[in-house]
């Protein structure tokens, strides 16, 4: 079974595309061929929570609830310095290695 990371934002357009692209590129570099990165609308998240392959949520918005999988705030992908973007990607890689 593959591993699914969902990238959620309010509108599911430009913002989540930027985060999705950054994470996909790093997953390819790490050789994680089974990791799928998919951008979604935050409003649609319920449908993904029951999926067995869901391993991580990256949200461009503030999160007001808890989930059973690790959650990362993705705003640095949009407005962080290159260092901040890399630090976040390192954290995501570490978390992915554990699942």
């Amino acid at each position: 079974m593959g591993r699914l990371i969902v990238v959620a934002c309010g509108a599911g357009i430009n913002t989540s595309t930027i985060a999705e692209d950054s994470i996909r590129e790093r997953m390819a570099k790490e050789g994680f061929a089974d990791v799928e990165v998919k951008r979604i609308l935050m409003a649609d998240i319920e449908g993904y929570l029951t999926r067995d392959d869901l391993v991580m949520i990256v949200s461009m918005m503030k999160i007001f609830r808890t989930f059973d999988v690790p959650v990362f705030q993705g705003m640095p992908f949009l407005i962080g310095s290159q260092d901040e973007k890399n630090v976040l990607l390192d954290k995501i890689v570490e978390a992915i290695k554990k699942v």
Partner: peptide
């Protein structure tokens, strides 16, 4: 204001915007 037909088609501009926003 980025009016988009398809965000993946504009991925290069989105990447460059994210680099700009972080500097």
């Amino acid at each position: 204001m980025l009016a988009n037909r398809d965000p993946e088609e504009q991925i290069h501009t989105l990447r460059n915007l994210a680099v700009l926003f972080g500097q």
